[in-house]
Measured scan of single mutants.
Amino acid sequence: MQIFVKGLTGKTTTLEVEPSDTIENVKAKIQDKTGLPPDQQRLIFAGKQLEDGRTLSDYNIQKESTLHIVWR
């Protein structure tokens, strides 16, 4: 499925993911596209910070959802 990651600059990155992907895995995909290391990424969805060990489905993140990224 496709999801979007929007940064503070307003730039949006598209990712191809599975609902079973962990947040850690998603951060690795973001690094592949942007070069930003996972330890500098904070992902937010529906006002919650996403924890590395959880999956996208744990947070009810579905296709075409938009996550927000904040740099540490």
Score class of each variant (00 low, 15 high):
Met1Ile: 10
Met1Gln: 03
Met1His: 04
Gln2Gly: 04
Gln2Glu: 08
Ile3Leu: 05
Ile3Pro: 01
Ile3Lys: 00
Ile3Trp: 01
Phe4Tyr: 13
Val5Asn: 01
Gly7Pro: 06
Leu8Gln: 09
Leu8Lys: 10
Thr9Lys: 12
Gly10Tyr: 05
Gly10Asp: 08
Gly10Glu: 07
Lys11Ser: 10
Thr12Gly: 06
Thr12Asn: 06
Thr12Val: 14
Thr13Arg: 06
Thr14Ala: 10
Thr14Tyr: 07
Thr14Gln: 08
Leu15Glu: 01
Leu15Cys: 02
Glu16Lys: 08
Glu16Arg: 10
Glu16Tyr: 13
Glu16Pro: 03
Glu16Trp: 15
Glu16Ile: 12
Val17Pro: 00
Pro19Asp: 06
Pro19Lys: 06
Ser20Lys: 08
Ser20Asp: 13
Ser20Ile: 06
Asp21Gln: 04
Asp21His: 05
Asp21Thr: 08
Asp21Val: 03
Asp21Gly: 02
Thr22Trp: 05
Thr22His: 05
Thr22Glu: 03
Ile23Asn: 01
Ile23Cys: 02
Ile23Asp: 00
Ile23His: 01
Ile23Ala: 02
Glu24Asp: 08
Asn25Lys: 14
Val26Ser: 00
Val26Met: 03
Val26His: 00
Lys27Trp: 05
Lys27Gln: 02
Lys27Val: 02
Lys27Ser: 02
Ala28Asp: 06
Ile30Arg: 01
Gln31Asn: 07
Gln31Thr: 10
Asp32Gln: 14
Asp32Lys: 14
Lys33Arg: 09
Gly35Glu: 03
Gly35Tyr: 03
Gly35Leu: 04
Leu36Met: 13
Leu36His: 07
Leu36Pro: 03
Pro38Met: 15
Pro38Asn: 07
Asp39Gln: 10
Asp39Glu: 14
Gln41Arg: 03
Gln41Ile: 15
Gln41Trp: 15
Gln41Ser: 07
Arg42Lys: 12
Arg42Gln: 13
Arg42Met: 15
Leu43Glu: 00
Ile44Met: 14
Ile44Phe: 15
Ile44Trp: 15
Phe45Asn: 02
Ala46Glu: 15
Ala46Phe: 09
Ala46Asp: 12
Ala46Thr: 05
Gly47Asn: 06
Lys48Arg: 11
Lys48Pro: 01
Gln49Arg: 10
Leu50Trp: 01
Glu51Met: 10
Glu51Asn: 06
Asp52Met: 05
Gly53Met: 08
Gly53Cys: 06
Arg54Thr: 06
Arg54Val: 05
Leu56Asp: 00
Leu56Val: 08
Ser57Cys: 04
Ser57His: 08
Asp58Gly: 03
Asp58Asn: 04
Tyr59Asp: 01
Asn60Gly: 14
Ile61Lys: 00
Gln62Lys: 11
Gln62Tyr: 09
Lys63Trp: 07
Lys63Ile: 06
Lys63Gly: 13
Glu64Met: 11
Glu64Thr: 06
Ser65Pro: 01
Ser65Asp: 13
Leu67Met: 05
Leu67Phe: 03
His68Trp: 13
Ile69Ala: 04
Ile69Leu: 15
Val70Gly: 06
Val70Trp: 11
Val70Arg: 09
Trp71Leu: 15
Trp71Tyr: 12
Arg72Tyr: 14
